[in-house]
């Protein structure tokens, strides 16, 4: 198992030339590899700035924006369309109930006043009690206040109903499960209609070619690193033949031979990338303008805006209805008290009338 320990020993001149040659080779390799890496960074930077390939990837995505999902959940939690539908149906009945109480109360006053007037006409000054008309003045004033309030409530009901009619469709949509909601929104990404369109196919193809260029680069880099470069024999021969070593000439010639093809391929690779990046930028320009101007995009915006305002209107309508229902219920209590007052005074007047009539007949 003999190993010659002095195998590598060479003349000093050769040793010096070898070290210079190796640093030349290192510079060349570093420069080539550096260019490849730099090109890859540039390519990644440009694609990132164009949001590629992400913009192309979510073409098939049709997701509902998070904010809309939250609004949908909120509306469903509050009972959805059904709960406000029911309340709106109740409004006319609540109104009618209050109207009837008020009308009955005023009718009682009217009837009693009529009999009082008839008796006054019949007995003239002998019918000397206060006329009902005078007595009922404050009650009638109160009655007209109630009528005004009810007229205003009718207008309020109308406003709520109109608001409901305007938004009920969108509110219903908002209450749908996410999958239906998603399907009902015109392609969440306007480019969706661009899917399969020329510009998208071209852009995809260009990105694939770019990927290939990048992959080639990796292979190229490995090959460059793998190149063997040993000047020992050349330098030894030169020294033996000429007595001197023209390191630079010998090294550059050898580097050209060994790395010429790689250098050429690096250049081609970089040119190929430059061309492709220019093409990608033009295609992306077209893609972006198409995306902007696409009628679908506008449609999507419109629907999303409507969905958002549907949520806001739902909240408003719910509070309007709560207020309206409370209004009618509170008013009913007040009107029932008013009705009691009217029936009490009418009852008192009737009792008084009967006594007066008895007196007159006896006299």
């Amino acid at each position: 198992k003999f190993t010659d320990l002095f195998e590598k020993m060479v003349p000093m001149q050769v040793q010096q030339s070898l070290s210079i040659a190796s640093s030349r080779k290192a510079d060349l390799v570093n420069r080539l590899v550096g260019k490849l890496r730099e090109a890859t960074n540039l390519c990644n930077g440009v694609l990132a700035s164009l949001n590629l390939p992400a913009a192309l990837e979510d073409l098939s995505g049709d997701s509902v924006p998070q904010s809309i999902l939250e609004k949908s959940r909120a509306v469903v939690q509050q009972g959805g369309l059904h709960s406000i539908e029911q309340l709106i149906k109740d409004l006319p009945e609540l109104l009618q109930r209050n109207r009837e109480i008020l009308d009955e109360s005023l009718k009682m006053l009217d009837d009693e006043e009529t009999t009082d007037n008839e008796l006054r006409a019949k007995f003239s000054q002998r019918w000397n009690r206060t006329p009902s008309g005078d007595l009922y003045k404050p009650l009638r004033a109160e009655g007209s206040n109630f009528r005004n309030v009810l007229d205003k409530a009718v207008q309020a009901d109308q406003v709520v109903r109109e608001r409901y009619n305007t938004h009920c469709e969108m509110i219903a949509l908002l209450c749908k499960p996410e999958s239906e909601l998603c399907a009902a929104i015109p392609s969440a990404n306007p480019a969706n209609t661009l899917q399969g369109s020329e510009v998208v196919n071209v852009l995809k193809a260009q990105l694939q070619q770019l990927d290939e260029v990048k992959r080639n680069r990796e292979v190229l880099e490995e090959e460059i690193k793998a190149v063997t470069f040993d000047m020992t024999t050349k330098f030894l021969t030169a020294l033996a033949q000429d007595g001197a070593i023209n390191e630079e000439a010998l090294s550059t010639t050898e580097l050209d031979t060994r790395y010429g093809a790689h250098t050429q391929r690096v250049k081609q690779n970089l040119c190929a990338q430059d061309d492709l990046l220019a093409q990608v930028q033009t295609s992306h320009q077209e893609f972006a303008t198409l995306k902007q101007s696409n009628a679908e995009a506008n449609n999507r915006e419109e629907v999303l805006k409507k969905l958002a305002s549907a949520h806001d209107s739902y909240v408003e309508i719910s509070s309007n209805l709560k207020e309206g229902t409370k209004f009618y219920n509170d008013l009913t209590e007040i009107l029932l008290r008013f009705q009691n007052k009217c029936s009490d005074i009418v009852f008192a007047r009737k009792t008084e009338r009967d006594e007066l009539l008895k007196e007159l007949q006896q006299s």
């Binding site: 404050p138 005004n148 309020a156 209004f327 007040i334 007052k341």
Partner: peptide, 16 residues
């Protein structure tokens, strides 16, 4: 608010 207030209607006027 949308509906009229009932505050001034709640107070019962005293019959003289």
């Amino acid at each position: 608010s949308l509906y009229p207030s009932l505050e001034d209607l709640k107070v019962d006027k005293v019959m003289r």
